[in-house]
């Protein structure tokens, strides 16, 4: 920005020439109208997003009677018993731990296996390299619902149907296409000289990867790691079909869907909203703390 234009447009313009002054005035009124418009629209959308979430939260403290007769009122006193009922009786606590177990292992596995495959595909030339790359990347193009029937029987025959370790393996397999796609691109952008120096110093390829390349790829790993954690934490379709056995093994999304159906019969709306809040709050809390990284991580794939 040159100082000249600063003076025309900036507020601190000491003695603006008359012609410019007229234009400056017009500009700032244009800005004023737009500004007011912007805030109105943005505020309306912010309310449309925020109010339903807040509504669920404050409903979780009300009795079912209050929720039904006065859906909009604030809770008169705080019924934490809704939360404890949801946590223990509706097993949300158990489902929460199951989900944490599955997602913890599967994200770790996805990042490890995805980075290993991506590194080899990005840095080494060998026959079949392109073919394997497109095999992985092609996985992004087809709808998962399409393979539900055969996948059901594959997992059944392997003996991993309706088990949590089975779910871990399935999550890893279905997260690989995007992870390999992104990490391959990322490894290509890293300089080759550091790895070459390590190899000349006698480090093995494996050691070079784990001690040099992986730490260098940290920004990419964080982005895609966040992407995978959220995607796997929120997964519903795969567990619905492949983990429908013992309710003890359910993940959070299955538990919530079941809670919603159950409340239709039992009328325990307080527990339903408490269950929703239990599922919602930790994710939102983590998001608010790491908002920059989460936004970057989730949009990374589309921006490249």
């Amino acid at each position: 920005m040159t100082t000249e234009t600063m003076q025309v447009d900036g507020e601190k313009a000491a003695v603006p020439p008359t012609a410019s002054a007229a234009r400056w005035k017009w500009r700032s009124s244009e800005g004023g109208v737009l500004n007011a418009f912007s805030h109105v629209f943005l505020l309306v959308w912010a309310l449309m997003v925020g109010v339903p979430l807040l509504w669920a939260l404050w409903s979780s403290f009300k009795t079912s009677g209050e929720i039904l007769t006065h859906p909009w009122s604030l809770p008169t006193d705080f019924h934490f018993d809704n939360w404890s009922r949801a946590w223990s009786k509706a097993n949300i606590g158990q489902y929460f731990l199951n989900t944490a177990f599955v997602v913890g292992l599967s994200t770790f596995g996805t990042m490890l296996l995805g980075s290993m495959a991506a590194y080899v595909l990005a840095r080494f030339e060998f026959p079949g390299n392109r073919f394997i790359y497109f095999l992985f990347v092609g996985g992004m193009a087809f709808p998962v619902v399409m393979v539900l029937v055969p996948l059901f029987f594959v997992t059944k025959n392997l003996g991993i149907l309706n088990t949590l370790p089975g779910l871990v393996l399935i999550y890893i397999a279905y997260s690989l296409p995007f992870t390999v796609f992104f990490m391959t691109a990322f490894f290509r952008t890293l300089p080759t000289t550091v790895a070459e120096a390590a190899l000349i110093d006698g480090a093995s390829h494996t050691r070079t990867f784990f001690q040099i390349m992986l730490p260098m790829a940290k920004p990419g790993i964080i982005s895609i790691g966040i992407f995978n954690i959220l995607g796997q934490w929120n997964q519903y379709l795969l567990p619905l079909v492949l983990n429908q056995g013992d309710t003890k093994n359910w993940v959070l999304t299955q538990g919530l869907a079941d809670l919603a159906v159950q409340q239709g019969y039992q009328g325990d709306w307080g527990a339903l909203f408490a269950g929703l809040s239990i599922a919602m709050l930790p994710v939102l809390a983590v998001y608010i703390v790491f908002q920059k990284q989460v936004q970057a991580g989730l949009t990374a794939g589309a921006l490249k």
Binding site: T253, M280, L284, Y287, Q295
Partner: peptide
């Protein structure tokens, strides 16, 4: 605020 629904599970959004 706008990004909130993106981090929530679609399950939660649909039930809500």
């Amino acid at each position: 605020i706008f990004f909130f629904p993106q981090v929530l599970s679609i399950t939660i959004i649909a039930i809500l």
